[in-house]
């Protein structure tokens, strides 16, 4: 299915772009060139965050003084045992939750300070979500599911159609776009999920166990697709996973335990953009 080279890669005819988000990063690259990680400026910066929940009168620490930085275009894996705080971290980066203290920056936005409604608006434009259980609306067709986030943007119907078909084309489901989730296999449903995640052309895609509910073959296909998306569309992807095979595809894997970063493995072999 896939687009093997950047030449025939689809371009999103997006028209609503955030003014603040600078897509051409060359000048800023130089600006951030002294950063420790990679020679690309970080799109996500998590600075010394704490997160705790209250369980009765007890205070349970989930994340403890965590600092993470994710460069633009990176495919980052988050691993760790249950309760390690990886989903919480994902929630914080995706603006679904707020840290008890510390800062979360995505692009130029300090999202840890945003209000609920600012976050909503920001999420629509900046984040694409992929879930373990796909979370497609059963009453809507694949096309309508992918169109859903676009309804929140100031786009005309024809503009939306263009975006949706481009996204479905990219995930190879153009011929199935009028099927409902119930008529699609798990792998196909997850591809619709990916199409929905990329259709708004977000800066960042977060995936929560995207292969967790799939057989090995479908899982492999989904991971291939995620790599394509990263390569062709130059998306930054953060993926929580339990699956070592999935983690292998990542550029870098962070291991968390008890709310702390215990390992940061950068794979030398992974191709960069």
């Amino acid at each position: 299915m896939q687009f093997s080279t950047a030449e025939n890669a689809p371009t999103f005819p997006t028209v609503w772009r955030h003014k603040k988000v600078v897509k051409t990063s060359a000048p800023r690259e130089q600006q951030f060139s002294n950063m420790a990680t990679r020679n690309v400026h970080p799109i996500v910066r998590v600075n010394g965050i704490h997160k705790y929940f209250k369980r009765g009168s007890e205070k349970v620490d989930v994340l403890n003084d965590l600092t993470v930085s994710v460069p633009e275009g990176e495919f980052l894996g988050l691993m760790g045992p249950s309760g390690s705080g990886k989903t919480t971290l994902l929630n914080l980066i995706a603006g679904l939750d707020r840290p008890s203290s510390g800062e979360v920056w995505v692009g130029d936005n300090l999202i840890s300070q945003m209000s609920e409604s600012q976050l909503s608006a920001w999420r629509t434009r900046s984040i694409g979500f992929i879930f373990q259980f796909y979370h497609l609306l059963p009453v809507l067709s694949a096309y309508e599911n992918v169109e859903l986030p676009l309804l929140l943007l100031p786009l005309s119907k024809s503009q939306r159609r263009e975006q949706v078909t481009t996204a479905l084309d990219l995930v190879g489901l153009k011929d199935r776009m009028w099927h409902r989730p119930g008529q699609l296999s798990g792998g196909q449903q997850q591809r619709v999920g990916i199409a929905r995640a990329i259709v708004t052309d977000p800066q960042l895609i977060v995936a929560d166990e995207p292969t967790g509910d799939l057989d090995a073959k479908s899982a492999g296909e989904i991971l291939n697709l995620l790599e394509e998306v990263r390569k062709i569309l130059n998306k930054t992807i953060i993926m929580v996973t339990h699956d070592p095979r999935a983690a292998e595809r990542a550029d870098r894997v962070l291991h968390l335990d008890k709310g702390r970063l215990i390992e940061d493995i950068v794979k030398a072999t992974t191709g960069s953009v």
């Binding site: 995706a94 909503s120 608006a121 434009r125 859903l148 986030p149 929140l152």
Partner: peptide
């Protein structure tokens, strides 16, 4: 409930 939560994740505001 979970579907509505997904809509929220996708950026639907509480009032929407």
């Amino acid at each position: 409930r979970s579907e509505l939560a997904v809509l929220k994740v996708l950026g639907f505001r509480p009032n929407q």
